[in-house]
Design a binder for these strands. Structure first.
Lengths: 144, 144
DNA sequence: GACATAAGATTAGATATCGAACTATTTGAT
DNA sequence: ATCAAATAGTTCGATATCTAATCTTATGTC
């Protein structure tokens, strides 16, 4: 029988597969410090953007508002953050970390930095920049 | 305030983000032909491997057996495939496509090829090979 | 040959994600 | 000033995925 694809497997395959392996391994590393990937991404988004509303946080993480709501509910229940309505625009919620949230952030950041070192191992900065650039081209091609 | 990370955002971020955008866009393209990403991956795995058992199919797709069972249930209910116990080893199920499954496979393959062309647009084969090579390095680093 | 162990598959229960429908609040047009 | 449209969040129901537990069948040891 002839192979189902004319030539090589599409590039998206490789990318998809690699990204999933990466996410799984990273999640495992975070689990050792008591976190998960979405919790880490949420903490990071909150730290990176001063007093953002949920819409901005979700957008910066790359998830939908409904999904962020779900994670914030869990994290709020765990005492990692608080939500307060913005007095100037009561439609918005301002999210801020509690001391427990700050503490978890620091632990997970440590794990993230360690993981990133492992991941980059052997690849020079120049190569990584090339990779980032090609990924940017792919993203642009998706939209075109 | 100082940024939460010392230097640039980790490479895994970019990869994760790009892969998710890719998967979403691809899934949309498949939906136009009446498919989904997991259905396409399953069909492709079945075509690529002659009479494989579920364990092999799941492994080639990169999902767990339990997840494959879930998809096969749905696809079997849709009349896309059949499962038969292997007479030589009755623990195994042999999965085969029905004519409807073959037909959907051809439609989705068309969509996949079109999508892949769009995705690669502008990138020469040499660049894609480099990308694939760097992804392989990252996968190797994950395991190390 | 009987029984423990292994292997393939399924089931059950959990988390992450999405889109669509809904609620609350603000803005803008007349 | 009223009321329609827009904006921020939440809720609901669906799909995809995982791990752990279970079921069925096969293998191997004694």
């Amino acid at each position: 029988m002839k192979p189902p694809f004319p030539d090589r497997p599409p590039i998206g395959f490789d990318l998809h597969r690699t990204a999933r392996l990466l996410a799984q391994a990273f999640d495992t590393a975070l689990a050792d410090e008591g976190g998960t990937l979405p919790v880490w991404l949420t903490l990071l988004a909150i730290k990176a953007q001063q007093s953002a509303n949920q819409r901005e946080l979700a957008s910066s993480i790359g998830i939908r508002g409904a999904t962020l709501t779900h994670h914030l509910n869990g994290m709020e229940a765990q005492g990692l953050l608080t939500r307060q309505r913005d007095p100037d625009n009561r439609r918005m919620h301002r999210v801020s970390l509690t001391p427990a949230g700050e503490s978890l952030f620091r632990k997970l950041r440590g794990a993230a930095i360690t993981f990133d070192k492992r991941l980059r191992g052997g690849l020079p900065d120049e190569k990584l920049a090339e990779l980032a650039q090609m990924l940017a081209v792919l993203r642009a091609n998706i939209d075109s």
